[in-house]
Design a protein around this nucleic acid. Sequence first.
RNA 1: GGCCCGUUCGUCUAGGGGUCAGGACACGUCCCUUUCACGGAUGAAACACGGGUUCGAUUCCCGUACGGGCUACCA
Length: 504
Amino acid sequence: MEKRVRVRFAPSPTGGLHMGGVRTALFNYLFAKRHGGDFILRIEDTDQTRFVEGAEEYIVNALKWCGISPNEGVGFGDGPHKPYRQSERKELGIYKKYADKLIASGHAYYAFDSNEELEEMRKRMEAAKVVAPQYNNVTRQNMRNSLTLPEDEVKRLLDANTPHVIRLKVPRNEEIRFEDIIRGWVIVNSNQIDDKVLLKSDGMPTYHLAHIVDDIEMQISHAVRGEEWLPSAPAHVLIYRYLGLEAEMPKLAHLPLILNPDGNGKISKREARFPVFPLSWKDPREAEPFIGYKESGYYPEAFVNILALLGWNPGDNKEIMSLTEMASLFDFDRVNKAGAKFDPDKAKWFNQQYLRMQSDESLASEFKLVLESKGIKRDNEFILQFCKLVKEKVQFTKEFWNEGVYVFEAPVSFDEKVMTKKWNPTNKELFTKVYQRFKNLDIWTAVVLHDDFTVAQTELGKIDMQMLRVIISGVAGGPQLFDLLALIGKEETIKRMDHFLQTH
RNA sequence: GGCCCGUUCGUCUAGGGGUCAGGACACGUCCCUUUCACGGAUGAAACACGGGUUCGAUUCCCGUACGGGCUACCA
């Protein structure tokens, strides 16, 4: 019988969760939903030196904003496998138990080497022209561990609480193979793998041990993570094997990385000219916060949609999809192997698509907030009409402002090109007459204005619409002119014309 | 350096032994609109290279090149 699908997102709280991490969480979530399984959030805080204040809370908030909430785990209500924080699980002694089991079966050993001794070994190896020195089946023979030290000496050191780690005893020249769901068979010779530390001298497990123990204990069916874990996967297979748990080992899926748009490599928060965090992230060690997608004006649905299509596609040409839709379509056989460069332009386009799907009312209430932040108060109907007029010109709500400042504030400058080309005494005379006609209009709607304008042209000759637009708005382009005039209102329109004619 | 993973338009990608190699973003042109945008139409734009296998390879295999990842008592 197939195992129930249980997947986990297991970040370490060493900083803000960036978009790559969110994408990993997203694929886990989609896979779980697709198969009616569970999605778990586990916090891998086994490195106390890298702990960052606020990071865990950030991870939880970011997932919530994205709408990809786990149904079990830290910040989302405990489940049957609590606790979900590895530092707390360590207190339960579960990692030690598994490490001891490996010691007992001879697949792990104690190592007493100090940092200095490790450093010396590396230097020696480098002197011998070894580029990447490893603690492995060859070098361990010259180090201080339970494989080289006499038994009673080991016992004495242990009894004296000498600082030590537990290392995995990786066999010599063995072929290790495993099948990755995305990449197929991967084969590595064990000589390439170092004797990984399983339990650190502070008693904490390393990632290698901890995630395996937890995946087993939490009955995880699929371990879905970034490609950066691929090189250590063979070591993980060995650990499962030596624990006698190879049959229960989760299936592995290594996701392609999200790459920088220009140049190459993983996205870096420092160089990027686009947000890399879902929400603004203020690192306690940094002076300036990193602005997030949320604060940049992205809809969470758009953000998540963009991320999903970085490395996955539904097989047809569909691009705009809700989380539910994606979840019904998702599978690993449609996940790419190659890394994907992030395209900030396309991200904006995605947001534009979602903006258009919003109702005018909801856009208006969003934009009302922007106006209020600028100290401008208008009634809801006015804002609604304004939004209707300019919505198809913007990709973000905040752009409503730039797109139509002149609706709220009379222009102080006038498009130079249009002015030099079109403003002349003849036009001044003409627009003075237009001004008079406008003044005498009793009803001020787009339709009436349009009709009156048609009549006016038969009497006065051709009237340049763009010139009128510049007089009213200062800029050369914008929404339908009569709609615009109707929105601005008679009083304000003639006031602006009057002022313009006086000063030009 | 070693090991692992990868390589279709500039970017995200579809496809997969015989296709005019399809779509999307961005870009160009035209239409619509007395403007801008939206929309519509259209254009330019790709199978990294070299060997096999095959009647036929972009597709399968092997090399090469290039890119990425890993190479900690970090995850």
